[in-house]
Write a protein that binds this DNA or RNA. Structure first.
Lengths: 339, 339
DNA sequence: CACTGGCACTCTGCTGTCGGGAGTGCTAGA
DNA sequence: TCTAGCACTCCCGACAGCAGAGTGCCAGTG
């Protein structure tokens, strides 16, 4: 009973603080939520919550605000993911349905997430490592220069320019192209490297220089995975972080410029199919200590291809944000799964 | 004589204001720059400059700050582009030399510009319209689905997925691929459309449906030019816009999210080979009225391929920024010219 | 005629003071 | 276990006073 109400109080504090952005006091609390008790009682509960580290007061005799630990409890036990309205679902669908190529899908997703959550959206491009080789193309640019193009099953195109020491006759080019495709098409990217190991042996000694150059470029494209790209949107929403934000916003902007940081932000999860919320200091990156990240993987039923999420102030609407992120991830997963 | 000194005063005001970010008064002026006259004299000049609209005071009895018109005069007549130090030149070169593909070049350029100028950098991808077709590739994705890939002389790759009503036999695919390449390779993108006009006539009636679908996708890629992409960097530098910037920064962030706005920002110029400075209200976009844009085209000697530039507060170091932008444009031009 | 020095004036911005208000913790009582 | 009351703390806005910076103007000088 007592425990139960304490949790109710914490939930009420989080909800009020999220909507008003101001420390919430005992009196306002009983007025807005109809807990059947008096402010004084609430005060006792609040004192207890403060002792346990779930809330804090900015200064003596101000209202309370939730701590990271408080938000954590709220997310884990006090709230449920808010499903989207039918109108919103419809909007998602029509927004994403017009997409043509992969870039377009990712770009639209980012916009959509940013609009829906009114926060900063981050979408990772579908990872190469999970996809398979669709086609390898060699294009002569000059007599001693080749463009190696790798097309994957997710529609992604990787390109590399290779400088070859010698002239490359068309016949060799055709043969090499055929062999490359025969060896790798349909194979998963990480496995494709292995399929190519014995390829040089099928060519004559003086051809091998060329073959080796092309192979090394292709292998580079295949393992590119680790420097996956991400797309970013909704940075204008940073302006709603709060009025105290000259200090707050700068480190955040800096973090957003670093692809590596963004990837780590999305990445550090165990099971990508489960919605993940990282709150304030739980974020390894300093400068994002008053920032929360909500992320989840997306992809076909069988596999997660990449992750997406949003980033906002710790004082965000968690149920709504989580609902939006999850819904968008599902739709996008369906779309890239089909493609 | 009098006119000359008035201009000196304006220059001094601009320089001081840019470095201090505070309204500059007559006394400080004579101290910092050794104009050989007394503050009282300067005050007369300042009054005149104010009448003519070159400077203004935020409130009675504060120092003066330059107006947009003042900056304009400063840029046009009172300053010269500041050449970079040898160290900076070296940094540019080594920074850009490691670049592999086009994406990489653009990404590095953006970072470089942002670091050098400590402002927001914008780089347009080399325009398709000036480049030529290097290769067209058709890749079957499924029995009724084709990937059309266009590779340009600047190393850019455009891709489109086409849904074909019917099965596409390999023979037709090969024939079509050959014909497409024969007709367009080496041709400028805007002209290539014309070369393809008669292509359908060489195929039988039932093949034409397929040919038409592929063609329309290819034509789309060819004229894609108008929605050229841009890359953005250094947004963290927005935090240095000033302490008054919650109002200032939000519209700017919004503008930066819109590709179209960015393109127009770079685009609206007569001769792209000449360094262009657009100051405050000269910028057509509202929300960027306290923002200046320094931009210039880049490319080979013969042609400009695209533009790049930076965006910052009107109170920016114009000579330094202009020098950096020009220098970077030259190096990048050299690199994409070679590629 | 152009420059200078001096003077009165006008702002801003900082400091300190002072209630009002909101919120708390504690204690006594139901 | 909850409630009511009370004294206390602290923030915040208003107000006044003051120093400083800067201006405009005017009379004087080479």
């Amino acid at each position: 009973m007592l425990e139960d109400r304490k949790l109710d109080v914490l939930r009420a504090i989080v909800e009020d603080y999220v909507s008003t952005h101001e420390p919430v006091g005992s009196k306002a609390l009983v007025e807005r939520h109809n807990l059947g008790v008096s402010p004084a009682t609430i005060r006792n509960d609040m004192a207890a919550l403060e002792d346990e580290g779930y809330i804090a007061q900015p200064h003596t005799s101000a209202g309370r605000i939730p701590t990271d630990k408080g938000y954590r409890l709220f997310v884990d036990r006090l709230s449920s993911v808010k499903p989207l309205s039918p109108a919103e679902r419809k909007a998602i669908q029509s927004f994403l349905d017009g997409a043509m190529d992969l870039d377009d899908i990712v770009a639209r997703t980012v916009r959509l997430l940013a609009q829906l959550t009114r926060q900063v959206a981050v979408v990772q491009y579908p990872s190469l490592s999970r996809s398979t080789v669709r086609h390898v193309e060699l294009v002569p640019l000059a007599t001693t220069r080749l463009l190696v193009v790798l097309i994957t099953s997710t529609g992604r195109v990787e390109q590399r320019v290779v400088e070859i020491g010698a002239d490359v006759p068309d016949s060799l080019l055709g043969e090499l192209r055929a062999q490359l495709n025969a060896a790798t098409v349909g194979v998963r990217l990480p496995d494709a490297a292995g399929m190519l190991a014995e390829l040089p042996e099928r060519f004559t000694a003086d051809q091998r220089i060329t073959v080796a150059s092309v192979l090394s470029a292709l292998l580079e494209s295949l393992v590119e995975e680790h420097e996956d790209r991400v797309m970013l949107g909704g940075t204008a929403n940073l302006a709603r972080f709060g009025p105290d934000f000259p200090q707050t916003i700068h480190p955040v902007l800096e973090a957003l410029e670093e692809q590596m940081v963004l990837l780590r932000l999305l990445g550090e999860s165990t099971d990508p199919s489960v919605l993940q919320v990282r709150i304030g200091h739980e974020n390894s990156h300093e400068g994002l200590t008053s920032t929360s990240v909500v992320s989840v993987g997306y992809g076909s039923e069988s596999e997660m291809l990449a992750k997406l999420g949003v980033l906002g102030p710790t004082r965000m609407d968690y149920p709504g944000t989580m609902g939006a992120v999850r819904a968008v991830a599902r739709y996008v997963g369906k779309i890239v799964g089909e493609a």
